[in-house]
Design a binder for these strands. Structure first.
Lengths: 194, 194
DNA sequence: TTGCGATGAGAACGTTCGTTCTCGTATACT
DNA sequence: AGTATACGAGAACGAACGTTCTCATCGCAA
């Protein structure tokens, strides 16, 4: 049995991924060193490299975990807005609105990352594309739940509106693009016969 | 009179900015060293640092020039599609379609850059936000030229669709998001009484 | 021709980074 | 208790980068 002071492998992993998320998302991948991750996580260099044998592996682990955490947050927030009476296909815009309003918001971590990963590492690209595919898939599921008969191009259009809004909100530093995107979505839904 | 072999200051500047554009856009800012720019441009280190006293200054110069070049290309391509009979507010999607189809396409250079510049350098952020503001402004002008009475939220919505499509086309490596964005734009225009 | 300011080529410098290694300590096992 | 193993702290190492400096060369004025 380990004494209290020592960290289990699982605790170390959680601490590392939490530190990586804080640092990579807020500063960007290139601006964060492995020593930064060690200092923030309180894990030794040895443990860090035992769990993630390279910075690229750590980035991959971070992206994979951020995907899970983000999707859980997103679907939960969307469901909450739906439960409050928002149309299922407008709820994603309100969920993103909560995120944009936070002080930590710095755009989509996956979009931000793709500019930084060279052409080499396909692992990262696959995780990033997989994230966007899963978001699109979830919106398509929301469309199926909808009362409207939804045309097949609509979910993809809504996903494009969401990403465009996230990107522009980060660039302009306000939520006007999200408002415009929501207005467009509302208008698109209005064209569908009930 | 200078002999043919020597470069004028202007030639050097053009060569540097051309090299910077190739390298920064295709590989990302952090992955390109000043020596890379020197090698590609054929300009001496001395000249490079005389014209741009730091890498940050070079990045700023690159962003400013890319903004000019890109806007000129964009407005020209849009006008060409309008002249071919495309609706003024759909033409931007066809113009972007040409770009996405090229092998050099790697998303929006400005969106890609914002992830890489730290919180420090406001100069870069201002150029990037200014670029997006000018694109939005141009779409608003296209809307004014349109026969339709255009609601005020429409230009911003179209700009969001464009950026979302550019980002997703880069991530997925195909032009399906652009098709979806264009379909949405067409639908939005269809809701406007002529 | 001679001397001088400007320039190119690229070495040099100091820093940072990713990764590995050393060493001292603590834990587990007999 | 004694020994071997694992681990934390952080120094060390080699490479890469941004930036500056050296020195040889060149154009040009007198």
């Amino acid at each position: 049995m380990s004494p209290v002071a020592t960290m289990t492998m699982d605790d170390a992993d959680k601490s590392i991924l939490s530190a990586a998320d804080d640092l990579f998302y807020s500063r960007g991948i290139a601006a964060v060193s492995m020593s930064d991750v060690r200092d923030r996580s309180g894990v030794s260099m040895r443990r860090l490299y035992t769990l993630y044998p390279s910075k690229g592996a750590l980035v991959a682990g971070w992206l994979a975990q951020r995907h899970q955490v983000w999707m859980t947050w997103f679907t939960t927030a969307v469901d909450r807005h739906i439960a409050q009476g928002t149309d299922a296909l407008l709820a994603p815009f309100d969920a993103i609105g909560e995120w944009v309003a936070t002080s930590v918001f710095r755009g989509c971590g996956f979009i931000n990352s793709i500019a930084e990963v060279g052409e080499i590492d396909d692992t990262h690209r696959l995780i990033i594309a997989g994230h966007k595919r899963d978001v699109l898939r979830h919106i398509a599921e929301l469309a199926q739940r909808s009362d409207h008969p939804v045309p097949e191009w609509l979910p993809a259009s809504l996903a494009v509106l969401l990403d465009g809004a996230i990107v522009q909100c980060a660039i302009f530093g306000n939520d006007e693009p999200l408002t415009a995107a929501r207005s467009a979505a509302l208008q698109l839904l209005g064209t569908i016969p009930t």
